[in-house]
Amino acid sequence: MQQVTSALLPVMLLTAVGVVAGRLRWIRPEAVKDLSNLVFLVLTPALLFRTMGGVQPGQVALAPVATYFGACLLIFLGTLAVRGWNRAAAVQGLAAVFSNNFMIGVPLVGLVWGEAGLAHLFPLISLHSLVLLTLATLALELAPGTAPTGLHPARAVLQAIRSAIWHPVPLPILAGLAWGQTGWAIPEVVDKPLQLLGQALGPVALLMVGVSLANTRLGPQWRGALVLALLKTAVHPLLVLGIGLALGLSGQAFAVMVLAACLPIGANVFLFSQRYGVVQDQVTAAVAVSTFTAVVSIAIALALLAPGR
């Protein structure tokens, strides 16, 4: 229990500071985009490159990552089966499986397992948007009765793939892995600034989560939002855990995947719903609700899977 508290308390406190700062308008809603750019374009690439520079491809455990995406596929297809194959169901299915791996996952995994845990999380992050956004784009563009968007479905999918690859996440991961194969150490004059930038990622990202929550209103969407939040933070990790145990998986890499599945809905789902003009209010509310339901899931997962268990 002490390990769970020590891991969750800094996350909750930093998020709470962000909420207060947002409510008091010390950080205005207009500044969230600038904070987002700082996190995604500066701090994240520094941390990703520096961490992956010390990882060999053979150290990446593929089975836990495959288990994570297998659970995603089951939930996504299940959502389409229950709610019908339409644009709203496709966005809701994406919300039920798309984790906030950056702003919450990276600082949380870093606190619990350090760089060793991050080395397991980053390969998942590098594939996360590519796999899930492409899947959702296919479902949206090919949904029966969908009005044309002006793009051929194949071109829309190719654009989704290109956007997911040409992104400040996969590129520094691949660059870091490539650098690691040279056997050269990162020069200290470069390594130290990268280290300092990487250390700033967690606090700044969590502050941004809090500011975003301070400006989110649930309104009449809370019922649908709660369903999506429970699918994401309860059903998703339980499926990852169940599939992994059935396959005989264990160890740190598997624990990181289960914890990643516990995380709340990522902001990319909101951007996706805005782009297609589908269930925007419900997704916005679900992102907020899942942030709170994830606290319970994360606490349970850490109690079962944290180091020393």
Rank of each mutant, 00 (worst) to 15 (best):
L263R: 03
A66W: 10
G308T: 07
V283Y: 15
A46H: 02
S6D: 11
L74R: 07
A234I: 15
P29M: 03
A246T: 09
S129E: 12
G198E: 00
A7E: 06
Y276T: 04
A229M: 07
G198I: 02
L201A: 00
V55M: 06
A119S: 08
A288Y: 13
S250D: 05
M52S: 04
S36G: 15
R162Q: 11
F272I: 12
Q282V: 06
G219W: 01
A285D: 11
L41V: 12
F122L: 11
L77T: 09
L249Y: 12
P172W: 14
N37P: 06
Q221F: 08
V106G: 01
L43P: 00
I75E: 03
R23T: 14
A303F: 02
W113S: 04
Y276R: 04
A260K: 01
V19A: 13
L47G: 00
T291I: 01
V227H: 10
L228R: 04
W26H: 06
L48G: 00
Q2D: 14
L302S: 10
V189G: 13
L245G: 01
L43H: 00
L218H: 12
P45T: 07
P107A: 08
L247T: 05
A116T: 13
I27M: 03
E141N: 14
S297D: 07
L230K: 06
A205C: 04
Q2H: 06
Q199T: 03
T67R: 05
P220D: 15
V296C: 13
Q2G: 05
E141M: 08
P172K: 08
A303W: 11
Q59K: 06
V131H: 08
N101V: 15
N101W: 09
R50Q: 03
V258W: 06
L194C: 01
L135D: 03
P203V: 00
A89H: 13
A175Y: 14
H236I: 13
F254K: 13
R50F: 00
A89W: 15
F40N: 03
G210W: 05
A234S: 07
